[in-house]
Design a protein around this nucleic acid. Structure first.
Lengths: 146, 146
DNA sequence: TACTCTATTGAGAATCATTCTAAGTTTAGG
DNA sequence: CCTAAACTTAGAATGATTCTCAATAGAGTA
């Protein structure tokens, strides 16, 4: 999905739930969509600051989106701030413990695992946050050279 | 593993890596081991406060254990503080989004998934943090009654 | 035992992401 | 236009975690 489409979808979802569309919310949604990776609140605050948008608004908007389930909080061990995932379907986030890069991996076995788990434990499944820490190929090479 | 054994193992691991064994570290390790669930730093601080142990020491010890890989940080969306897992083998943490209860689930498919992932992506695998949010059976029943 | 050097402890201050407050601004709908 | 409710935001407050640094304890040595 292209960034512009994605931004639209975020806004639409807000509107659909009774939130007004404002220039500030548009800017926040665009910043989220155009980030490309896994944005943190601080990064979005930074991105929309030139447009005179306050941090409270950024946090409010992000919190609203999270409550609606359109984005997903993703607290990490390697980072001091919470990052957000625009992809809320179950997938594995492979995090390089050296450079911090995050790679989204969709593995069919994960859905299977979750389905089995839900029936076994009897929980009604809501969301999943799967994080695997390792060293990415590039950082492995760098390590060898150093 | 019995709590007392577990506490011993934590201490031994510290010692094995050059950390001295002190009464304070013993107390922190015991508090971790006897907690039974997924302790937070604040809970351990509280638990050892009667013995006159400061929070800096608790945080230092926990950080040391985490660096050695004997315990694992487990940041959650539902909780304001980081919790720790004494079980560092890959497993699924099923978290009830209503009552906050955490259930450890060992699923053989997870190990399979991780192995395949490692070979696919080419990362050297270090640790995994798998969290599934849902509503536990008990909270589902309560919901019906209310 | 006395000495020295290093690791450890811990009270209190500092940090920093996030949340709250309260006052001003915008908007929808009549 | 009005008005009430939603929205924005600067700045203050919160609260977990980290840092500082002076005091203490322990291991090795003579």
């Amino acid at each position: 999905m292209r960034p512009e489409e994605r931004a639209q979808r975020l806004l639409q979802e807000l509107e659909r739930h009774g939130y007004r569309t404002t220039p500030q919310r548009e800017a926040v949604c665009q910043a989220l969509a155009y980030h490309g990776g896994h944005p943190s609140a601080a990064e979005i605050v930074e991105a929309v600051r030139p447009q005179g948008i306050g941090q409270a608004t950024v946090y409010n908007t992000i919190t609203a989106l999270e409550k609606l389930g359109v984005i997903q909080a993703m607290p990490l061990n390697t980072d001091e701030h919470t990052r957000y995932d625009l992809d809320t379907t179950p997938h594995v986030n492979v995090v390089c413990s050296t450079c911090g890069a995050i790679l989204d991996c969709h593995a069919p076995q994960l859905d299977l695992l979750l389905a089995q788990l839900a029936s076994q434990v009897g929980t009604s499944f809501e969301s999943a946050n799967v994080v695997v820490y390792g060293r990415c190929q590039q950082c492995q090479r760098t390590q060898l050279v150093a």
